[in-house]
Design a protein around this nucleic acid. Sequence first.
DNA 1: ACCTGAACACCGTTCAAGT
DNA 2: ACCTGAACACCGTTCAAGT
Lengths: 188, 188
Amino acid sequence: MVQAARADAQRNRELLLGAARDAFAAHGTDASLRDVARSAGVGIGTLYRHFPTREALLEALLDSNFEELRAGAEELLGSPREPQDALHAWLTALAAGARTYVGLPESIMAALADENSKLHASCAAMRASCARLLDRAQKAGTVRSGVTASEVIALAIGLAWAAQQPGAPPDSMARLLSTAMHGLAVPG
Amino acid sequence: MVQAARADAQRNRELLLGAARDAFAAHGTDASLRDVARSAGVGIGTLYRHFPTREALLEALLDSNFEELRAGAEELLGSPREPQDALHAWLTALAAGARTYVGLPESIMAALADENSKLHASCAAMRASCARLLDRAQKAGTVRSGVTASEVIALAIGLAWAAQQPGAPPDSMARLLSTAMHGLAVPG
DNA sequence: ACCTGAACACCGTTCAAGT
DNA sequence: ACCTGAACACCGTTCAAGT
């Protein structure tokens, strides 16, 4: 990765990533790896050499996204924004990211749960930042205590999943998240 | 269905349903249909003759579940229970049903959206009953207005999906639903 | 009527052979 | 070092041949 890779290998790697991005966008996370290799103009064995597992391919595609979410949380922590608003904004960004590909919500939940996952480190870092955002809002008294970062993330990803199902109107993600934020029940 | 089916055909149908129930429980809704036929002791062609599509198999397995959910909603409507509590209880039952098989949340959302789906009728009837339950609670002023039955269902199914992901603690469904019910934000 | 399984077109994954 | 594609063990689905 640092250097040393043969020029053709480097090029194949990038061709594969580009093809994978397109295929995942078009057919979801379950897209045929054979198709990916095919449209990258590369043998199927080459795909497996570069990315031994489908998850490794996803990781290469998504690692920067999780890092951005983490950085976004840190930025919100330093902003003058209301703690509750900041959390809401971050969850919106998380859900938007989770909807990039059909099937991505599954991968995120799996990566958070599985310590051996290649995506685990960046996902866990993202969750840690979410925890700080959540903790601040709870200490400010504007977000219910007794709720964990894992739960808040599961909530947002679950709603992202629902809003991604065929037939869901385009604004459903925002509506569902807002409902969860303010409660289905009328307070009082 | 009413009568007239040859005895062996009738028997094969039941063997297939039993095998499918086991396979779906063990491997989720994507279980191999070949395996289903195999463990039913029946040719793969026989499976396709009885159930031309995987969804038809699911339908035969689930139709009664949706009918039970519909009936449950009607029962709650007639009970002296608080309208908001009744809705909460019903959503809990819905989510529990959606978690029967891995992959079932997808099927329910698909059936609600696709008018041509075999499951559509029973799903739509269930949604209509949910709408009555929701409407009553909204008229009573204890559930937020401007939220639709489709949204409430998407919310519950999305959380059921999240609570079904590997790594989720056993009580997460109840916790997530309760959070959505009362809101992540502290009222006031 | 109904059942069967070979046949077809696909997968994911591995690995011997090539450069 | 790296690339390739045949090979293997699976799928879902169809359909001619059997009873």
